[in-house]
Computed example of a mutant assay.
Amino acid sequence: MWRAMASNMLTILVVGLFLAGGLILWGQARYKNAGPLETAMCLQVERGSNMTQVSRQLEDQGAISSATIFRMAADYTDKAPQLKAGSFLVREGASMEQIIDEITRSGASTCGSEIEYRIGVTRIQTRVRELNPATLDFDEIASFDVTEEEVPAAYTQKREDSDTRYRVSIAEGVTSWQVVEGLKQIDALTGDIPEIPAEGALAPDSYDIVRGADRAAILQSMQDKQQLRINAAWEGRQDDLPIKSPEEMLILASIIEKETGVPHERGQVASVFVNRLERGMKLQTDPTVIYGVTKGQGALGRGLRRSELRRATPWNTYVIDGLPPTPIANPGLASLEAAVSPEATDFVFFVADGTGGHAFAETLDEHNRNVAKWREIEAERQSTGN
């Protein structure tokens, strides 16, 4: 009898272990396999929330099939204490494993609202955007110039939301003075700026920030990134260029940046200036003259006068030989690379062609014909009011 009882107990134990193992495998599959969510959504995790509350919220919204498995998995992987507050994108069909990773990884919101401050050459624009989970595109809620327009209610409201993300974007070709003045206008930042960084020392790019970030610290991040770009570009330079230092490269890159906004033209524009330097020709580029007038403190807002083209300043390349003494703006990475890897051409002239780009020429006669075409285009635009 005892043998029979022991045999039965053993059988029950084996069956129990088998069932437990199967239950674990079933739970693991539910945890790792695609979830039931049919359309991406934003998950709002409030401050002070716990995994129990979040799991119920996800189950109610149809993002997971079992709040219990979700909680057990978060506890088992020791991720429950790592829950972050914020607004998180839960993609269509996301598994429980992916959702837990999303809400515990960094705390950076991946959904909800974003405020972007864009410091451009002519304006400082603030954009308020909100991610549409269905399209994964940002819908613009408000856009305004902080120096000229009234602050819309949408901006004030989103600034109060705890999950709003912030970004500062610096356009290619802005001056250091413009960047500093732009940062001063951003009310989400704090701190003073002791001095304006050297021209060309800031990397045009987009920078994630937090509300209350220090202005000087953001400037330092821009300088650190630009120095890395300068080092990399100089390391990869072509041989036998007429620029002999990273500083000269930076100066040339800033001129290229101000002369064209057409990406595929940068190499050609660079070749014009390299060819002129090699032949001992003056660079004769208007943006350097403008910098001599404004010192980088805002846009000129009008055409150059003949007297300004003749006036001797350290930056007037119609008067001086070679490069000006400093950069005239903060160039982007592409212009830095063009300065040290210009296209192989014989171009020494270029002029606007009416399409937003330029017509390049090897000879003065060809250039004069291109100039005549451009003047015809200008005259036609003035007559039609375009």
Rank of each mutant, 00 (worst) to 15 (best):
Ser169Val: 15
Ser169Ile: 12
Glu114Thr: 14
Thr77Met: 00
Thr104Gln: 11
Asp139Gln: 08
Gln82Cys: 05
Ile100Gly: 06
Ile141Ser: 12
Ala153Tyr: 14
Val168Trp: 02
Ile103Arg: 04
Phe70Met: 12
Glu172Thr: 06
Ile64Tyr: 08
Glu116Ala: 13
Ala153Ser: 15
Arg129Pro: 01
Gly107His: 07
Thr156Phe: 08
Val146Asp: 05
Ala80Thr: 02
Ile115Val: 13
Glu92Asp: 03
Val146Glu: 08
Ser176Ile: 05
Ala63Phe: 07
Val168Lys: 04
Ala153Gly: 13
Ala63Asp: 07
Ala80Ser: 08
Val174Ser: 05
Gly112Thr: 04
Ser169His: 11
Ala142Glu: 03
Arg118Ala: 11
Arg91Asp: 07
Gln98Tyr: 09
Glu114Tyr: 09
Ile115Glu: 00
Gly62Pro: 06
Asp161Cys: 00
Val151Thr: 15
Asp101Glu: 12
Val168Tyr: 06
Ser162Ile: 14
Glu150Val: 10
Phe138Asp: 03
Tyr76Gly: 01
Trp177Asp: 13
Gly120Thr: 12
Thr104Ala: 11
Leu83Cys: 02
Ala63Leu: 06
Asp161Trp: 07
Ala73Glu: 11
Ala171Tyr: 06
Trp177Arg: 12
Ala63Cys: 10
Ala134Leu: 06
Ala142Pro: 12
Lys158Ala: 13
Ile103Leu: 06
Thr77Ile: 00
Val128Asp: 07
Ile115Cys: 02
Pro133Gly: 06
Lys79Ser: 14
Gly120Trp: 10
Arg105Asn: 01
Gln178His: 09
Tyr76Gln: 06
Arg129Phe: 05
Met72Phe: 09
Val151Ala: 12
